Amino acid sequence: MKGWGKWIGALIGFSVFNFFGGVLGFIIGSMFDARTSVEWDERFTGSTNYTGKQAYQRSSTGDFAASLLVLTAAVMKADGKVVKSELEYVKKFYIGQFGAEKTRIQMQALRDLLNEPIDVRSIGHSIRYQMQYHSRLQLLHYLFGIAQADGSISTTEVNEIRRISGYLGINSPDFDSIKAMFIRETGGDFKILEISTDANNDEIKSAYRKMAKKYHPDKVASLGDDVRKQAEEKFRMVQEAYENLKKARGFS
């Protein structure tokens, strides 16, 4: 039975609360496996050389559910402070997925993580090999949303998200595209469409079709309503960037 708890938890969570319910079940199941792991070693070796917390870290390495929570904490404390608006952003997102009671458990785990050192590199690599690319792009959008929750995105937050993005295997044009959706700057519409400022009209049209397909909300429809809403917002920004360039260039 060793190691089965997280999968049983994920199965129950998925059957009741969809994909993100499975994520929550995976976290809770991993905690169960951690305790069981310590008991297992004590039973068969007579001792254990690690604490329950260390056992949890050991058993949950590579678990996407725990990894998602860890990346949330990494971005929240990137600028050296954790503000209420960021906590509320995360809380609102999780309530939409899990409900109030299960979100309470998540938020407590998050508060604990905010006081711990975080190995973003190993977590990012773990998610990279467990998650499809379009879902990783949506994860990046979520992380930028956390950073923006207090009304502005600091350079340290951008750098932390950029670092995470690299570990997630997200290419630079995609990172710059999503960043441009949150931080408006000269040439931002071109960056959103991932083209240079000297692109011709046909290249702009082609880029729009490509980006509309890449960011279509249907790609993440299985991840729940809140994730889909974020995807719809990203899709809307792609459309807006295209309309801005059409107007500026005078083509239809």
Results as ranks from 00 to 15, higher is better:
T48K: 06
G52R: 08
A66D: 14
V70P: 09
Y208L: 08
D33M: 13
I161Q: 02
K102R: 10
M1G: 07
G62L: 13
I118S: 13
P117L: 05
Q138A: 01
G250P: 05
V120L: 08
N171S: 05
I105S: 03
D119L: 00
K191Q: 13
A199N: 11
L11N: 05
F93T: 05
A100N: 09
E232C: 07
N49G: 06
I28G: 04
E116K: 11
D112L: 09
F175A: 02
S67R: 12
D189I: 00
D33R: 13
G187S: 11
F32D: 11
I28Q: 07
T186L: 02
R128E: 11
Q138M: 03
P217M: 09
G99R: 00
Y133K: 11
I183W: 06
A55W: 08
S60H: 11
R184T: 08
L113F: 06
G52D: 06
A180V: 15
H125A: 10
S172R: 00
I146C: 07
S30N: 13
A10V: 00
F251V: 05
A149M: 13
S60W: 10
T48R: 03
V23A: 10
V23W: 02
L245H: 03
A66N: 15
S222P: 02
T72G: 13
D150L: 00
K247V: 15
